[in-house]
Amino acid sequence: MSKKVLVLGEVREGSLRNVSFEAIAAAKKVSGSGEVVGVLIGDAVANLAQELIQNGADRVVTVEHPHLKQYTSDGFSQAFIAVTEQEQPEAIVFGHTALGKDLSPKLASKLQSGLVSDVTDIEGEDDAVVFIRPIYSGKAFEKVQVKEGLVFATIRPNNIAPLAKDESRSGDVSSISVDITNLRTIIKEVVRKSTDGVDLSEAKVVVAGGRGVKSEDGFAPLKELANVLGGAVGASRGACDADYCDYSLQIGQTGKVVTPDLYIAAGISGAIQHLAGMSNSKVIVAINKDPEANIFKVADYGIVGDLFEVIPMLTEEFKKLLVNA
């Protein structure tokens, strides 16, 4: 049996997030030879429908309403439930993002379904689909199957490859009108703190600092390197506890779990809790004065040295490389 799968296209600052294209690729596997339907929710999002289709969605359903300009669980669940009522899907895939994490359990509860969160890989397809997800913050993995009812999963950014974009694809775009009422949460203000718009959980490159960074100012060279590589800055718990940076940057068993293509750990000793948050990165570089530091055990490449010497040199060297590229 092939499945009809709904995928939420997540919009941030007017653009679709990359994780939504990854979710389409995941939805294809779940659907077998079924249909993948993109869902767009917002105040003006229909212009993004083609992009979802070019990235593999068969068609798109949009719900637009002024009250959907900002995400609220009440508003978005009303919109999404209206789509499920019309489409009667057999499966749903979201990104495991702040929005996905907040919205999916509410919907799963409304739909009386299971929910497999934070999936990093999918084996098999259609009815035989098996979801792989980290447990104990990546110290172990589990394979999960849905026994009964709707198949609902959220996928971790950066783990499932999106399909190749095909600009010749076309598909139907339709809209549903939904009256969005009774929003119980009022958003007063959004204070942007993230590093130059590159989100830590989706970044392809993460430059992280630990106690070795020594001060808030010590993060400056790390930020510069991250900027050159188009990456984000992260931190160990030690650096956060010492007030060198905000807790929102913390990577580890408490904090964020990241899986970038390149993780550069500077002045991080490599406590087991930190390793849980980053050891599944594709390539790990460790820079530490202490040759015995635990971080070298998981690093692909290591440099024993002072990060304040090494990081600026690295930045210059990458600049040269990227100019020539």
Binding site: V116, E142, K143, V146, K147, D300, Y301, G302
Partner: peptide, 25 residues
Amino acid sequence: KAKTTTVEIYLPAQKVAGRVLEGDL
């Protein structure tokens, strides 16, 4: 009754320690 079930639990492949570079910084 649970809607989902864990069919397998396993540890990730052990990461082999990589190369610590040598020579002039």
